[in-house]
Design a protein around this nucleic acid. Structure first.
Length: 115
DNA sequence: CTCGTGACTCCCC
DNA sequence: AGGGGAGCCACGA
Protein backbone atom coordinates (compact mmCIF):
# COMPACT_ATOMS: atom_id res chain seq x y z
CA UNK A 1 0.00 0.00 0.00
CA UNK A 2 1.44 3.27 -1.04
CA UNK A 3 1.10 6.24 1.22
CA UNK A 4 0.87 9.68 -0.29
CA UNK A 5 2.28 12.65 1.54
CA UNK A 6 -1.26 13.95 1.84
CA UNK A 7 -2.26 10.81 3.65
CA UNK A 8 -4.00 11.82 6.89
CA UNK A 9 -2.50 8.81 8.60
CA UNK A 10 -0.41 9.47 11.70
CA UNK A 11 3.03 8.00 12.12
CA UNK A 12 2.04 5.31 14.59
CA UNK A 13 -1.13 4.67 12.59
CA UNK A 14 1.15 3.71 9.73
CA UNK A 15 3.05 1.47 12.12
CA UNK A 16 -0.12 -0.43 12.92
CA UNK A 17 -0.85 -0.71 9.23
CA UNK A 18 2.51 -2.32 8.61
CA UNK A 19 2.36 -4.61 11.64
CA UNK A 20 -1.05 -5.92 10.60
CA UNK A 21 0.49 -6.99 7.31
CA UNK A 22 2.96 -9.30 9.01
CA UNK A 23 1.95 -12.78 7.85
CA UNK A 24 1.43 -15.78 10.12
CA UNK A 25 4.62 -17.29 11.42
CA UNK A 26 6.66 -14.21 10.61
CA UNK A 27 8.24 -11.51 12.75
CA UNK A 28 9.88 -8.16 12.09
CA UNK A 29 11.80 -5.51 13.97
CA UNK A 30 11.13 -1.99 15.18
CA UNK A 31 13.99 -0.66 13.13
CA UNK A 32 12.77 -2.30 9.94
CA UNK A 33 9.34 -0.82 10.36
CA UNK A 34 10.79 2.59 11.14
CA UNK A 35 13.00 2.38 8.09
CA UNK A 36 10.03 1.43 5.99
CA UNK A 37 8.26 4.53 7.21
CA UNK A 38 11.20 6.66 6.20
CA UNK A 39 12.77 7.24 9.64
CA UNK A 40 15.35 4.51 10.40
CA UNK A 41 16.22 6.17 13.71
CA UNK A 42 12.64 6.43 14.86
CA UNK A 43 12.47 2.85 16.03
CA UNK A 44 11.51 4.14 19.48
CA UNK A 45 8.34 5.54 18.00
CA UNK A 46 7.45 2.11 16.75
CA UNK A 47 7.77 0.85 20.29
CA UNK A 48 5.64 3.72 21.49
CA UNK A 49 3.05 2.84 18.89
CA UNK A 50 3.03 -0.75 20.09
CA UNK A 51 2.51 0.51 23.62
CA UNK A 52 -0.66 2.20 22.48
CA UNK A 53 -1.63 -0.61 20.12
CA UNK A 54 -3.85 -2.28 22.71
CA UNK A 55 -6.09 0.79 22.55
CA UNK A 56 -6.65 0.33 18.84
CA UNK A 57 -9.96 -1.00 17.59
CA UNK A 58 -8.24 -3.17 15.04
CA UNK A 59 -6.09 -6.00 16.27
CA UNK A 60 -2.36 -5.41 16.07
CA UNK A 61 -0.11 -8.50 16.29
CA UNK A 62 2.46 -6.72 18.43
CA UNK A 63 3.92 -10.07 19.45
CA UNK A 64 5.35 -10.35 15.95
CA UNK A 65 7.46 -7.26 16.53
CA UNK A 66 10.79 -7.69 18.30
CA UNK A 67 14.04 -5.76 18.54
CA UNK A 68 16.90 -6.19 16.10
CA UNK A 69 18.28 -9.14 18.05
CA UNK A 70 15.01 -11.02 17.89
CA UNK A 71 14.57 -10.49 21.61
CA UNK A 72 11.10 -10.07 23.05
CA UNK A 73 11.80 -6.63 24.47
CA UNK A 74 8.14 -5.85 24.95
CA UNK A 75 6.94 -9.06 26.54
CA UNK A 76 6.54 -7.27 29.86
CA UNK A 77 3.99 -4.98 28.28
CA UNK A 78 1.57 -7.81 27.60
CA UNK A 79 -1.04 -8.86 30.10
CA UNK A 80 1.06 -11.80 31.20
CA UNK A 81 4.76 -12.44 31.40
CA UNK A 82 4.65 -15.26 28.88
CA UNK A 83 1.78 -14.14 26.67
CA UNK A 84 3.99 -12.87 23.88
CA UNK A 85 6.09 -15.98 23.94
CA UNK A 86 2.99 -18.15 23.96
CA UNK A 87 1.51 -16.34 20.97
CA UNK A 88 4.70 -16.82 18.99
CA UNK A 89 4.86 -20.46 19.96
CA UNK A 90 1.34 -20.92 18.61
CA UNK A 91 2.60 -19.62 15.27
CA UNK A 92 5.33 -22.20 15.02
CA UNK A 93 7.91 -19.69 16.16
CA UNK A 94 10.23 -21.11 18.80
CA UNK A 95 11.24 -18.85 21.67
CA UNK A 96 14.16 -19.45 24.00
CA UNK A 97 15.39 -17.13 26.73
CA UNK A 98 13.05 -14.39 25.49
CA UNK A 99 14.64 -14.64 22.07
CA UNK A 100 13.18 -15.89 18.80
CA UNK A 101 14.99 -19.02 17.63
CA UNK A 102 16.01 -18.81 13.97
CA UNK A 103 14.94 -15.21 14.11
CA UNK A 104 16.39 -14.40 10.70
CA UNK A 105 14.50 -17.30 9.23
CA UNK A 106 11.18 -15.93 10.46
CA UNK A 107 12.12 -12.35 9.67
CA UNK A 108 9.67 -10.57 7.42
CA UNK A 109 10.79 -7.51 5.56
CA UNK A 110 8.14 -4.80 5.35
CA UNK A 111 7.90 -3.43 1.87
CA UNK A 112 8.92 -6.77 0.47
CA UNK A 113 5.36 -7.34 -0.66
CA UNK A 114 4.61 -3.69 -0.97
CA UNK A 115 5.23 -1.13 -3.63
C1' DC B 1 6.33 26.01 26.30
C1' DT B 2 10.25 23.09 28.28
C1' DC B 3 11.88 18.81 30.12
C1' DG B 4 12.05 13.93 30.67
C1' DT B 5 11.14 9.40 29.05
C1' DG B 6 10.54 5.27 26.04
C1' DA B 7 8.46 -2.17 23.52
C1' DC B 8 15.20 1.09 19.51
C1' DT B 9 19.46 1.50 16.86
C1' DC B 10 23.82 3.06 15.31
C1' DC B 11 28.45 5.05 15.99
C1' DC B 12 32.49 5.94 18.68
C1' DC B 13 35.74 5.18 22.44
C1' DA C 1 34.07 -6.66 23.99
C1' DG C 2 31.39 -3.52 26.41
C1' DG C 3 29.82 0.95 27.84
C1' DG C 4 28.34 5.62 26.71
C1' DG C 5 26.24 9.19 23.75
C1' DA C 6 23.30 10.86 20.04
C1' DG C 7 19.28 10.72 17.02
C1' DC C 8 14.65 9.87 16.19
C1' DC C 9 9.23 11.49 17.23
C1' DA C 10 5.33 11.57 20.29
C1' DC C 11 3.30 12.29 24.60
C1' DG C 12 2.54 13.33 29.58
C1' DA C 13 3.78 16.30 33.50
Amino acid sequence: MKLEKDSPIDFYQRVYDVVRQIPYGKVTTYGLIARHLGSPQAARMVGWAMNQSHSQENYVPAHRVVNRNGMLSGKHHFNGEHVMEDLLMSEEIAVKNDCVVNFEKHLWNPGKCLE
